[in-house]
Amino acid sequence: MQDIDIADLKRISELIYQKYGYDFRNYAMSSFKRRVLRIMDLKRFTVEALIRKLTESPEFIHEFLDELTVNVTEMFRDPSFWRIMREEIIPAILLNHKQFKIWHAGCSSGEEVLSMAILLKEMGIHQDVQLYATDLDTNILERAKSGTYSIKNMELNEKNYIRFQGAGSLKDYYREENGLAVFNKELLNNVTFRKHDLVTGEIFNKFDLILCRNVMIYFNQTLQNEVLKKFHESLFKYGYLAIGSKESLIWCDYANRFIVVNNEEKIYKKIKD
C-alpha cells in the first residue's frame, strides 16, 4: 500500500471544495487518510494521478464520494438503542404530537431508516410519521431508496432484529430475489430522500427527532461543533437527538442547550433555544 502525507491530503480536500463544493477540510484526519489511500489502491492511482483525475474528470467525483464516505451499517445496530426508541422516546413524543417528523442525517444505504420504518409499523403509527433521509452521496441515496440489500447481510440484521425483540420476523418485511433482500416498498412510502451535506447544507426543516449515529465520528471537533448547532436549529424545543454510543457532545458549545435523556444510548433532548 502507498502512503500519502498531510500536505497532499489537504490539497485533495481543497481541490474538492473549490471545484465541487464538498467540504472535507474538517474531516478527522486518520479516517480521511485511510479512505483516500483506499481509493488510490482500488483505482491503482498515485497521488498525482488521483489529483489529475479529480481535476479533469468531473464525473469521477460521484464514484470518489461513494468510496470516500463510509457506508458500512446494519439494521437495528445496537438493539438496545432501538428498544429505548420504541419503549421511551417515541412514546414520549407521542404524548404531545400525534404526527411528527424524524430526520436521518447521513443515512448512507438506509438501514437505519428502514429499521425506524419497521419499528413505527410495529407500533401502528407508520403513517403518522414523516421521515427525512439525507446523505451527500447520491449513489448511496439511490441504494437507500431501493430498500434492497445483499442477502449475506441479512444474517446480522436478523440477529439484531431478534435482540431488538421485534413483533415478528424480519423476513416478514422482505422477499428474496437473486441473492437480494427486497424490502416491501410500502415501508418507505413515508420517507423523503434528499441530497444534503451536513457541512455545507442549509437548515431545511424542523424535527421532533434527529438520528445521526456514527456520522460525526468522521468529523473533527470544529466541525462537530458546527453540525451540532445545525441540529439544534433543526429541532423543535424538547426534540430529541440520537448519536452513536461512543460519541459525545460534552465539548461542544451548544452542549448546555441539551440534556442527556439516556447516557448509555446517547440520546439528548433540546431544552433551550
Binding site: 478527522a28 484526519m29 486518520s30 458500512v72 451499517t73 445496530r77 456514527n214 465520528i217 461512543k246
Partner: peptide, 21 residues
C-alpha cells in the same frame, strides 16, 4: 478499543473512532 469500532489515534493525541469496513 470499544466493540464494533475501529480505534485510531490522531496527531493531536486524541482518539478517533470509525465504523469502516
Amino acid at each position: 478499543a470499544p466493540a464494533n469500532y475501529h480505534l485510531s489515534v490522531e496527531l493531536g493525541h486524541y482518539f478517533a473512532l470509525s465504523t469502516e469496513e
